[in-house]
Design a protein around this nucleic acid. Sequence first.
DNA 1: GAGTGGTCTAGACCACGGT
DNA 2: CCGTGGTCTAGACCACTCA
Lengths: 234, 234
Amino acid sequence: MTRAVKRTTHQGIREAIRARIISGEWKLGERIPGEVALAEEYGCSRTTVNRALQTLAQEGMVERKRKGGTRVRPLPTSQAQFRIPIMREQVESRGHRYSHRIESREVRVPPMAIRKQLELPDNDPAAYVESLHLADGKPFAFEKRWVNLGSVPAFSDADLSHESANEWLVRHVPFSRGEVRLSASAANAKQARLLGTDKGAPLFTMHRLTWFEERTITAIELSFAPGYEITFGV
Amino acid sequence: MTRAVKRTTHQGIREAIRARIISGEWKLGERIPGEVALAEEYGCSRTTVNRALQTLAQEGMVERKRKGGTRVRPLPTSQAQFRIPIMREQVESRGHRYSHRIESREVRVPPMAIRKQLELPDNDPAAYVESLHLADGKPFAFEKRWVNLGSVPAFSDADLSHESANEWLVRHVPFSRGEVRLSASAANAKQARLLGTDKGAPLFTMHRLTWFEERTITAIELSFAPGYEITFGV
DNA sequence: GAGTGGTCTAGACCACGGT
DNA sequence: CCGTGGTCTAGACCACTCA
């Protein structure tokens, strides 16, 4: 049984207002009463109403403008929190045993596209790691990773036998920001062999590029074994 | 030039604390000073510090527990706001002209998997629409949609000549929640023909299932033409 | 110019959860 | 138990933006 939320908490008021919007009492694009009016109606302080409305605005249910008041969004925008998948967590949360295996590791000059992404001076080498993420020993995802040694020189000596390249980097460069691209691509020969599928099979693919304070850190391509899905609520 | 944020606003304090975490002053998993201490340090009220920390918690940078205090997240969780793509917006924001075309429309009993998703009583028919989303007249995405007529009977008479099924539904059932799955799949013959690619080509695919107040509304499969990517910052 | 949201404050009480 | 975060309040001033 769900515990009812008190009427005069910011959560209670938020849900009450949400219900009134959903019920159609205030229609799409329509202006709803001001904070002062709502505070009086609900018998609470304006601060509390403000918090409720700010949350609804963040969720995309209403739009707020000074002087313009608060309006129901004309076209509701669905949005969701998307958590970047961490391999180990992902596998273990499904009740499987996680492991990973380095397929190859070297230092060399990356192809043009990667040099550009990593903003590498020409002919500067970078670390390259190919690895396989496994669930209960079965291939789960294939990872190609380039690491900018200009930004993270210590990566050359990283011991990747017990933690993945990602885990090592997270410990050494914890707060990086990044850009993510999701796409579908056809398995090449190597991917097909390592992921146990056929050449040309459709693979869900994620590219990531991360920075720490204006310096590029690493560029990753993750190809997931067939059947992989990302799921989230909206 | 970016306007500096005042030191005693919740934004300013949030960024100050973020900087101290990034700088390594407080390490991963470490407990940071309490709200009262920070309020004193920054010369503001506890309320303001509270708001700054709540925001950082929401972003996933810190974890907060009563009595336990506030800690830097042991493993930083990257997360992003992901906006559900609206076809028209998506196409028009790239400077193309959006159009769409109904390929087929009928009412019939859906296959088992869809009946289950839509929680349809056996043998109840549903509306089925196949349509193509175009950018500058070129195929962009192929949509297969089932609509639960038990929940939205008016859909039978919907005029889809000027708006897409999605746009019609958004106007009539604006505040639905949903579940999204992203995957990669191989183009079948029809998809290949309509999207102008080859059979077996990898297609980025999005499945959506939406509800309004415990009633299922619609189940959608969107297959994007090759080359399509979703991009977002983290 | 004036109305509306954005934010800060100081104080208060509550609820959770480690010790 | 009792320290910490969670929240509410009443009042105040500010900043944007519409008319």
